[in-house]
Design a protein around this nucleic acid. Structure first.
Lengths: 106, 106
DNA sequence: AAGATACATGAATCTATGTTCAAGTGTCAT
DNA sequence: ATGACACTTGAACATAGATTCATGTATCTT
């Protein structure tokens, strides 16, 4: 019911562009810890809801996150295909893996 | 004689933006294997030399690559600070590490 | 079924980034 | 010192991306 696979039609540079944004990086860092609804994300991020929504769309289109409706809310999580096998905070984009530092700064 | 340290003043998203470009990614992948002059890079990449130069500047400013003059040529290499401790093709940006797939595709 | 809640979408704007073109700088050979 | 070679720089332009605003859709409550 939600795109579950990495979008293989986009190249690595395009993939990195998806991550190369403060808001989207923050979203990913939050979701790596646990799945969250848009409202919860919104609280943590202090940006306009509509802007967050646009960013979530970018992440969705790339296949980096999954979403599922939960009552009125929509819950987002890191896409299974992207969850890194390795320990720690990481995502596997297919073209490359990105390991984030513990206790994400900036 | 050349910037040797990662530019710590830029955040992780900005750092990723530096990598999120086809040309710059290609440069990095080439340089991970061995240092190359601009001319050598240019041959491998099939883009206008002046454009390559602009991209190299972006990589330099971020501290991702180093350069040194060698006669008429200028030789570029992955910055020491960025060379990943881990085995394989990888760069360590400080905020995160990026492991590239073997035999880099796209 | 009407209103409130929780999000998504589309168009418009603004800003950042990639690309090109026209110089400019440093090095080597003569 | 002059010209060729190997690059860099700056300005102009074009495009892509982020942000805002106004509107639309799905779910729940009553």
């Amino acid at each position: 019911m939600t795109a579950v696979e990495i979008n293989r039609s986009i190249d690595c540079a395009t993939f990195l562009k998806v991550l190369a944004d403060q808001t989207r990086l923050a979203v990913i860092r939050l979701l790596i810890r646990r799945s969250l609804t848009v409202g919860e994300l919104n609280q943590s991020l202090d940006i306009e809801q509509t802007l967050l929504s646009h960013h979530l769309r970018v992440l969705r289109d790339a296949g980096v996150v999954e979403h599922q409706r939960e009552g009125r809310s929509i819950r987002y999580s890191i896409a299974a295909a992207v969850k890194s096998a390795g320990r720690g905070a990481a995502v596997d984009l297919g073209c490359c893996q990105i390991l984030f530092d513990e206790k994400g700064k900036s």
